[in-house]
């Protein structure tokens, strides 16, 4: 039981955080949390409810600004204050709450905040959106993902099931992420088949060289795809383990505090 987390000290983490603190009133969501994501890896993040997993990734995705601590990307200090700034850095996130707009259709949701405008006068002067292009692209992305069957791409998202909405959020992140993809519970609302598709997708994304952060309560999923597992406990990183060297039971013991984080 001496296996330390596999570290490659010569490689700079693509995304790194040190001593993150985030308080909400007298609740401390993050209590000096560290974090490292290596290039091209799938990093599983696990922890009990309230351990601070979502808070951690929100500090990396611009959804929240940490009270203390630093974030680095490719070894350089970055300050990410808004989701748009994270997006500009190539970080795409699927939030636990999904962050889709129910009243808009699927294509509008995929392109929210980065709409395609028509070429020429219509787009430049009249600011007209190219709905056709957005819908065609959206359809392409949704079917590539293959995790959902939709009747019409013009369907409002509120007419989709919870799992289908999750599909929209995952498709959005997968389509636009260029440096890091963060998935907070991406399979929580999905059936067995759809979960399988998302796991496939995660692996395909990694094959393309993109690192993925996967937060999940589903141990088999995490053990299936993760290269390393970040165990979050009481607002901090307890340790990082290699799933090939630990059993799920050992990991759960560390996560719950039944076993020391070695």
């Amino acid at each position: 039981m001496s296996a330390a987390a596999p570290q490659a000290p010569t490689v700079t983490p693509i995304l790194e955080a040190k001593g993150l603190v985030k308080r909400f009133g007298n609740v401390t969501a993050l209590d000096g949390a560290d974090f490292e994501l290596m290039p091209g890896e799938i990093l599983g993040v696990i922890g009990d409810n309230g351990a601070g997993k979502s808070s951690l990734i929100k500090c990396l995705s611009g959804a929240q600004v940490p009270d203390e601590g630093t974030v680095r990307m490719n070894g350089e200090d970055v300050v990410i204050r808004t989701p748009l700034e994270a997006r500009a850095l190539g970080i795409e996130t699927v939030y636990q709450t999904l962050a889709v707009s129910p009243a808009l259709d699927i294509a509008d949701n995929l392109y929210l905040g980065r709409e395609i405008r028509k070429p020429g006068f219509q787009g430049k002067v009249l600011r007209r959106l190219d709905k056709k292009a957005m819908r065609a692209e959206a359809k392409h992305q949704m079917s590539d993902l293959g995790i959902m069957t939709i009747q019409k791409i013009e369907q409002q998202v509120e007419s989709l099931s919870g799992g289908q909405r999750q599909g929209v959020a995952v498709a959005r992140a997968a389509a636009f992420g260029s440096k890091v993809i963060i998935l907070d519970e991406p399979t929580a609302a999905l059936g067995v088949k759809e979960s399988g598709k998302v796991l496939d997708l995660i692996q395909k994304v990694r094959q393309n060289g993109l690192p993925v952060i996967l937060i999940s309560h589903n141990m088999p999923h995490v053990f299936e795809v993760a290269d390393r597992i970040h165990i979050q406990r009481l607002g901090r990183r307890a340790t990082v383990v290699d799933p090939k060297e630990r059993t799920p039971n050992e990991v759960v013991a560390i996560m719950t505090g039944a076993a020391p984080a070695t």
Binding site: P83, V100, D108, L112, G113, L129
Partner: peptide, 29 residues
């Protein structure tokens, strides 16, 4: 009607009214 239907601004108005936090997370200012 045109601005609401056919421009990004219009889409953002709907998204913001629908769920402001979700819209913010999705990249709407």
């Amino acid at each position: 009607a045109y601005a609401l239907r056919a421009t990004a601004w219009g889409r953002h108005v709907y998204a913001t009214g629908d769920d402001r936090e979700a819209a913010r997370l999705a990249g709407v200012q």
